[in-house]
Design a protein around this nucleic acid. Structure first.
Lengths: 326, 326
DNA sequence: CTGTTAGCGCATTCAC
DNA sequence: GTGAATGCGCTAACAG
C-alpha cells in the first residue's frame, strides 16, 4: 500500500494525499479530504516513514546512548528520557555502551548513519567527546549526567555540591563528626564532584573507594566490619553502593542506623524499599530528562534547568519520624 | 557526502562504490577497491541507512515493546534483548507501553511505519494480539514472557510450573506446611501460571494478592503484621513484591527468615542484595532473550529453548550455608 | 484548491 | 569487472 494506491482509489493525486495525511503544508477541500481518508482506511494504508525520512531529511528518531542500562539510576533516567521523547512524537533508538568508550563511539556512528534527528548521551566516567562527530554531521546532541572534558555539547546535570552539603549537614545534626565517604574508583565525572564537595565540607574523615556495584560495596562493608574499622557515619556516592553496604552490614550483623548512619546520593526508587529504607538526596531525574529533551529539540517552551537534589529523610540516617516503610 | 561523491573522487561509478561498501553482491578488482576505500575515508563518507533501507526494504532495526521498563525484571530482560540484537548487527527501537493496551498498540503501529525488520513484545497481563498487525504487514514478531490468548506469534517463556514446585519443595524441607502465596491482582499471564502451580502443590494455605509493586507489598506486610495474620512461609510471585514484603517486615519489626520464610520467583540481580538476601527461583532471562532473537531473525544456529528457572538458595528461606552477602 | 513532476541516496538490473 | 540508468515511497516545488 503506497500513497499512489490511495491517490488512485480517491481519484486524486499523491500530493493531495500527502497533504491530508500530514495535515499540510497546503490546505485541502473538506470533501476531498474525506475521500482520501476513506480510501486510506479502506486500503489499510500505513505511511512509510523511511521514504518520508529520505525525502524530508528528518526521521523522527532520536538516539539514546547509555553507559549502563541495568543500574536503576540509569534505567530510571532512560525511562524518563524515552517518555519525554515519546510525548514529543519522537521514537527512541537505544544503545548500551557498557562503560566501553569504543562501543559508545560505535553506537554514535551507527545512530548517525541511521540519520537520527538528535542524540542523547548518558555517559559515565571517561569516553571521548562523541558529540563532536554529531556536530560534524549537523546533528544536535546533549550530554546528561556527565560530560567529557572539552565537550562540544550542553550538559544537563543537577547541582551535586548542594546535595552533598545537605547530606553532611544532616548527619552532623545527628551528632556525627567524622563522616566518611564511599567514592568510585576515581574522581572523574559527577561522582568526582560529589567527592570533592564532601572533602570541602568535612575536615578529616576517611575516604573509601570501590566500584559502583552492589557486590563491591558489600565486600567493603564485610571487610570493614571484620576489621572493626567501619565508620559510624557514611555517605555513599551512589545508591548501588549504599545497597551493597546495607547487604554487607546485614550479613556482618551490623545494625543500621544504630551502628552506622548512612546517606546515599542518587535517590532512585529502589532506595525507598531497602531494609532499613535509605535516607538519600534525590536527583531530579525527571526534570533532567525533560530539560535535556527540550534542549535537544529546541522546543518553544523549554523546561527549567534542573536544580539540586532534595534530601529525603528515611531511616538509614537515624531519623525516626516515619516508622512505616511507606 | 553521498555515494556519488565517493564515486566521483575514486573516478568510478556509484555501482562499484556500492559493491565495495557492502562487500558485494558483485566482485571488484583489488585496485579499484583500494581507490574507493581511500576516497571514502578521505571524504569521511558515512552510508545513509535510510536511503539504503528504502531501496533494499530492510532497515536493520528491530522494535522492542515493553510493558514496563522500570522494573528490574523487565529492565534486565530488555538489556539482554538489546544486547542479543546488537550482537547480530541490529539496532533497537524501544518503547514503553506502561501496561496500557492502547499505548502498546500505538507503539507497534509506529514501529511498523518505521519499517522495522522485526518486533519483540514483552507484554504483561492483558492487551490485544498486537502481533497480528505485524503478521499482516509481513513483519515477524515474537512474544517474550507473556502472550495474549490466541496469539499469532511464538512465545518465549521459561517453565514456571517447575520453578514453583521447587520453591514449595524447598520450603517443605525447612519444615513448613502451610505455604502462602502472594499473587498479582488477577491470574492472567505467567504469574497466573505460577499461582496455579502453587495451588496444585499446596493443599490449604492462604492466597494473598496485591499489585506488582514494592509499595503495595509493603502495605500488605505491615497490615498483616499489625493484624497478627502474617503467614510463616510465603512465596511471592515477583521480586518486586518480595522486596516490598522485606521492607514492610523490617518496618514492622518482623525478622526474616526467623518469623517468615520467604522465596521469590523472578531472581533478578536485585534479589541478591536485599537484607536478608532473597532465596529465589532464577528465571533464565539471558537464555530467553537469545532464544527470542534467534527465533525472530531465523538465525541458522538457534539457541536452545530456555528451560525452567533454577533455585538459588540464599538467606530469606532460612538457609544458612552462606553467611556472606556474596 | 488541485495535479504533475523532480529528486532524496542507494541497490540493482541491464548493457558493455 | 565496470558503468548508466531505474525506481524504492514520499515531499515539495512548480504549474495550473
Amino acid at each position: 500500500m503506497t500513497l499512489a494506491d490511495v491517490a488512485r482509489r480517491a481519484e486524486t493525486s499523491t500530493a493531495v494525499v500527502s497533504y491530508v495525511i500530514n495535515n499540510g503544508p497546503r490546505p485541502v477541500a473538506a470533501e476531498t479530504r474525506e475521500r482520501v481518508l476513506a480510501a486510506a482506511a479502506e486500503l489499510g494504508y500505513r505511511p512509510n516513514r523511511v521514504a518520508s525520512a529520505l525525502r524530508s531529511r528528518t526521521t523522527g528518531v532520536v538516539g539514546l546512548v547509555l553507559a549502563d542500562a541495568q543500574t536503576p539510576y540509569f534505567a530510571t533516567l532512560a525511562g524518563h528520557i524515552e517518555r519525554a521523547l515519546d510525548e514529543r512524537g519522537k521514537l527512541t533508538l537505544i544503545g548500551n555502551a557498557g562503560y566501553a568508550a569504543d562501543r559508545q563511539q560505535d553506537l554514535v556512528e551507527r545512530f548517525l548513519a541511521a540519520q537520527v534527528d538528535g542524540l542523547v548521551i548518558v555517559s559515565a566516567d571517561g569516553g571521548a567527546d562523541v558529540a563532536a562527530h554529531a556536530e560534524e554531521a549537523g546533528v544536535p546532541a546533549v550530554y546528561v549526567h556527565h560530560q567529557p572534558t572539552e565537550a562540544h555539547a550542553p550538559v544537563i546535570a543537577a547541582d551535586n555540591r548542594t546535595a552533598v552539603h545537605e547530606a553532611v549537614a544532616h548527619l552532623r545534626r545527628h551528632g556525627h563528626e567524622r563522616i566518611a565517604f564511599l567514592a568510585g574508583p576515581h574522581d572523574i565525572g559527577p561522582v568526582g564532584l560529589r567527592r570533592q564537595a564532601w572533602h570541602a565540607a568535612v575536615a578529616d574523615a576517611e575516604l573509601l573507594r570501590c566500584d559502583y556495584s552492589r557486590a563491591a560495596a558489600a565486600t567493603v562493608a564485610e571487610r570493614r566490619i571484620t576489621d572493626g574499622t567501619m565508620p559510624r557515619a557514611l555517605i555513599t556516592a551512589t545508591d548501588e553502593q549504599a545497597i551493597g553496604i546495607l547487604a554487607g552490614a546485614w550479613a556482618g550483623g551490623l545494625v543500621v542506623p544504630d551502628r552506622l548512619a548512612l546517606i546515599s546520593l542518587d535517590g532512585t526508587p529502589d532506595s525507598a524499599y531497602t531494609a532499613p529504607a535509605l535516607t538519600v538526596t534525590q536527583q531530579p531525574l525527571h526534570a533532567m530528562a525533560e530539560h535535556a529533551v527540550d534542549q535537544l529539540l529546541g522546543t518553544s517552551s523549554p523546561s527549567p534547568a534542573p536544580s539540586a537534589a532534595t534530601l529525603i529523610l528515611r531511616r538509614s540516617c537515624g531519623c525516626d519520624h516515619r516508622a512505616s516503610a511507606l
